[in-house]
Each structure stands twice: as C-alpha cells, then as structure tokens.
C-alpha cells in the first residue's frame, strides 16, 4: 500500500532534505547510514540531500534538534518536519514518514 502512494507522489515530489543523526560507529548508526542511502537511492534517485551528523562531535546541534536516541532521521524538506528513530531496517515505515504531510 505504501508503494502505491509513493508512486503517485513520485513526480511532483519536491527535493528531499534529510538529516541523519548517528553516534560514531555504533552498530545501529552504521546500519542506519547504509539503510538511509539505500532507500533514498532507490526511491528518490538524485533528488535528495542526506546530511549525516555525528552526534558525538556535535552534541549541541543534536540537543537543539531535540535528538534523544540514535540513530534519528529528520525529514527537513518537504515540510512538515518528521522524524524516524531506529536503524531504518523497516523500510515501509521510513517511506511512510517521508511522504507524510
């Protein structure tokens, strides 16, 4: 069902801006980076921006963004801002969030 929605919205979709907070090379963080890239490459090829922030190096930014757990994925564009926590293993959940308004 998620896929149906995705395809409908695919063409008018604006540029996707994401920020992924990770914690060094903690297993879940490493896995999240891989998963995020894979999902974006598959569903938004060449139309996304994925910023990866290492929380250990930038704790203040993370705190300002209200990050609690890692990894956390922030969808900054399109609005509204949405967030997904976890290593992004559940692709369907991620995609639902990305298209959610």
């Amino acid at each position: 069902m998620g896929k149906v929605i995705k395809k409908k919205r695919k063409k008018p979709a604006p540029a996707l801006v994401l920020r992924l907070y990770v914690a060094g090379n903690a297993p879940n963080s490493v896995r999240a980076i891989t998963n995020a890239r894979a999902i974006c490459d598959e569903h938004y090829p060449a139309r996304y921006v994925l910023e990866i922030v290492d929380l250990i190096e930038h704790p203040d930014t993370a705190m300002a963004d209200g990050i609690i757990v890692t990894p956390t994925l922030l969808k900054l564009q399109p609005q509204p801002v949405r967030r997904v926590v976890g290593n992004l293993d559940d692709t369907a959940q991620v995609l639902l969030t990305l298209v959610a308004t």
Partner: peptide, 27 residues
Amino acid sequence: MDAQLSPDVVKSGEFDLVGMLAMIRAK
C-alpha cells in the same frame, strides 16, 4: 533534558542511547 519522544515519531528498527549519552556527557 527533555527526552520525551514525541508521539508522532516513527520507529523503524532498533535504536540505542549511544548518542544521548554522548550529549549528556558533553553537558
């Protein structure tokens, strides 16, 4: 420190507290 996950947060896979502890340590 507000560590309340807002109800509209979506969970996808496992997460951990590594980042949080790093932030707290900085603080």
